[in-house]
Design a protein around this nucleic acid. Structure first.
Lengths: 113, 113
DNA sequence: CAAAGATACATAAGACTTCGATGTATCAAA
DNA sequence: TTTGATACATCGAAGTCTTATGTATCTTTG
């Protein structure tokens, strides 16, 4: 099952911040692949959603960027800033609380990871 | 903490379907109050979001409506259809799977309800 | 008894986010 | 050499939610 995009809405930034917190630096394409891999294909980030969001994180000062050349190919790395790290914690905690609340509303059991 | 609206995005229909599945029939204002109560105020549905969504559910054939008068006051009750019940199960399951996936991505523990 | 607050419906314009399509270009493998 | 993967990115369209607004009734309180 691939999750409906509506569900992923609102969690994209959180996912990106968490990935960058765990991996020092990542580039766009790498992120799409990592997410696909970690979720067994259930979440597939589209570039149309990913790049605008990465740029927004940069504008907010949550990530910094650095360009590297692999041969002639450009690779733009994104790295979490200190503010970004703080924001990541906030976002992840907020999501955990949200899920706890939704469990009450929907009366669901969440399978352990 | 009131959850950022981004988080609630994509879950509103699921919440409504579940509430209606548990309560035979409910009216709009009642729904906003019930959700507020069940979530200790953390999720506050606005009418601008609620009514369009209820109308959409009706157009999709997932709910039926009936009008009652309390004195001179109109109350519009929403009731789940059979299709709506099926859709509710699908949506709730999808959300549960989504949360399981997000747990892996975000490496979180979800507190029991 | 008047005013305020709660109950109850609803719409509409604007903002924001995401999707799907499109574009460019390099590299590797068949 | 051509296909598929890698890698960046933007843009118009679509969808959803927010804020504001509108109408009207009922209840409580000063």
């Amino acid at each position: 099952m691939i999750f409906s995009s509506e569900l992923i809405k609102g969690t994209l930034k959180t996912i990106l911040l968490k990935l960058l917190a765990d991996n020092q630096k990542m580039y766009g394409y790498e992120i799409t692949q990592r997410v696909k891999e970690l979720t067994a294909g259930r979440i597939q980030l589209t570039e149309g959603a990913l790049y605008p969001t990465l740029h927004a994180l940069e504008e907010e000062g949550l990530v910094t960027t650095e360009v590297e050349y692999m041969g002639k190919r450009v690779r733009k790395y994104y790295r979490l800033s200190d503010t970004g790290m703080t924001r990541k914690d906030e976002k992840v905690n907020e999501f955990a609380d949200f899920v706890a609340t939704m469990k009450i509303l929907l009366d669901i059991e969440v399978k352990p990871a």
